[in-house]
Design a protein around this nucleic acid. Structure first.
Ligand SMILES: NC(=O)c1ccc[n+]([C@@H]2O[C@H](COP(=O)([O-])OP(=O)(O)OC[C@H]3O[C@@H](n4cnc5c(N)ncnc54)[C@H](O)[C@@H]3O)[C@@H](O)[C@H]2O)c1
Ligand SMILES: NC(=O)c1ccc[n+]([C@@H]2O[C@H](COP(=O)([O-])OP(=O)(O)OC[C@H]3O[C@@H](n4cnc5c(N)ncnc54)[C@H](O)[C@@H]3O)[C@@H](O)[C@H]2O)c1
Lengths: 205, 205
DNA sequence: CCGTATTTGTGTTGAATTGCACAAAACAAG
DNA sequence: CTTGTTTTGTGCAATTCAACACAAATACGG
């Protein structure tokens, strides 16, 4: 693997490539080209080739890429050649949907626990999980050595809970609360806010 | 308003600024500065000033920005100085969560209908809505002149449903299905896929 | 085995984006 | 009114990102 610093923007596209490759593999295809992959994901062939070539030479001239081989390598690059345990914090509608969601399987993740502060929810079952009390969260995260969390608490509680997650050793937060989080530089945050996403499109209407 | 073409990347940051401003307004603040706003959203003050100045002069030297005034202008720029009707397609866990979600209020959107193809779901209530049959979707979208849709069907059905949405006149799709969509250039798509977002962070672990 | 078609990886160029720095405006205090 | 402080808007420089274009490698048909 190349020791050079890879731009975030390139890393951000790799999961998109991987997702498209997985769909091709599901349809029984064995090889593809930067051209074909580009048509699927809406990115130029040249850019795809350049992105992939940052990490090594995975294609064959004249033939293109072996889908399986490229997927294996992308998974390794993204460190999802393993299953990451993820916790959910906030056992409301969104937290429940995520716990029920079967789509993390085969994508590198597994929900292992869900936490809430509401005593009337603690102990209740959601899918196969029992809602855990947030007061035990730090201890559980540490003992299970969990690095990833999805945050589905109300906006007003999000920063406070994020602080707890950081203290517990969480290194990446997928934040569903509609608020920007303040975390140390070594902790990554990604945001999902449907209002923001919709607002990015209404400008063009 | 400046007639110049504004880069997508700038438009994409405006909703983030707006969200932070709304939170400041909720806390009773009246003015802010590019410096302060930047600390909240994790973007440099210079960049915020340059982004905002693409659309006009909304600040006062020495004082900063009136939060209310800047919010009003950002809403107008993003065309959310109105309420957009949005439909949900796919009445599963995610579709239900979106229908129940109160967070679209005050952000420019209102869910008005939810569709599904499963006859056993059609007619059932989800929140205050009755699930509509997807066979009536084209007609309903056209008669209500709806431009926005959130797509929460399984990946295998997503492209087919997206095609129907395009035919019906939908101009912006928020796609929750883990697949890239192929749509005409005049239709915008935004993607929400928690696996992709998580995969963008594991690289750095 | 040869000629044609395909497709990668990459050096180079060009475009887009960000960062820097400061004049000019606004305000507050005395 | 003057002086000192704050903060915007923006020209310019630096950096980052994307597009182009092509040599080199491979496959294939005959
Ligand atoms: N439901 C959606 O479709 C949707 C969509 C987009 C974003 N969101 C956002 O996701 C978050 C959750 O949404 P929701 O609809 O599930 O809300 P919800 O109110 O149904 O659930 C929030 C849960 O968080 C728990 N909680 C509150 N404070 C907590 C704390 N300090 N520690 C631990 N748990 C705490 C509550 O007890 C509740 O169970 C919100 O920020 C919301 O804005 C939701
Ligand atoms: N649940 C989650 O937390 C979650 C998270 C991320 C992404 N997603 C994605 O969102 C989508 C929906 O997820 P879900 O958990 O709600 O799934 P789900 O299976 O619970 O719901 C899907 C719904 O779509 C309906 N449907 C199927 N084909 C249809 C068609 N052609 N036209 C109209 N409706 C159709 C089904 O009847 C079902 O009601 C999936 O693509 C999933 O990958 C879900």
């Amino acid at each position: 693997m190349n020791p050079n610093k890879i731009p975030d923007i390139i890393v951000g596209r790799l999961p998109i490539y991987l997702r498209a490759l997985q769909r091709m593999a599901d349809r029984g295809l064995k090889t593809t080209s930067s051209q074909e992959l580009g048509e699927h994901v809406g990115i130029s062939a040249a850019q795809i080739r350049k992105d992939i070539s940052q990490f090594g030479e995975f294609g064959k001239q004249g033939t293109g890429y072996s889908i399986q081989f490229l997927m294996d390598n992308l998974r390794e690059i993204l460190k999802i050649d393993q299953i990451w345990d993820v916790i959910v914090v906030g056992a409301g509608d969104m937290g429940s949907a995520l716990v029920h969601y079967q789509g993390f399987q085969n994508r590198g993740f597994r929900v292992v626990m869900i936490f809430d502060s509401d005593k009337s929810k603690v102990g209740k079952k959601i899918g196969e999980f029992v809602v855990e009390d947030i007061v035990n969260m730090l201890e559980k995260i540490k003992s299970l050595n969990i690095k990833l969390a999805m945050l589905t608490v109300p906006a007003v509680a999000a920063q406070e809970v994020a602080d707890k997650l950081v203290v517990a050793g969480i290194k990446a937060i997928l934040n569903y609360a509609p608020v920007s989080l303040n975390v140390p530089m070594n902790v990554k945050v990604q945001y999902i806010d449907p209002s923001v996403h919709l607002q990015r499109m209404t400008y063009y209407l």
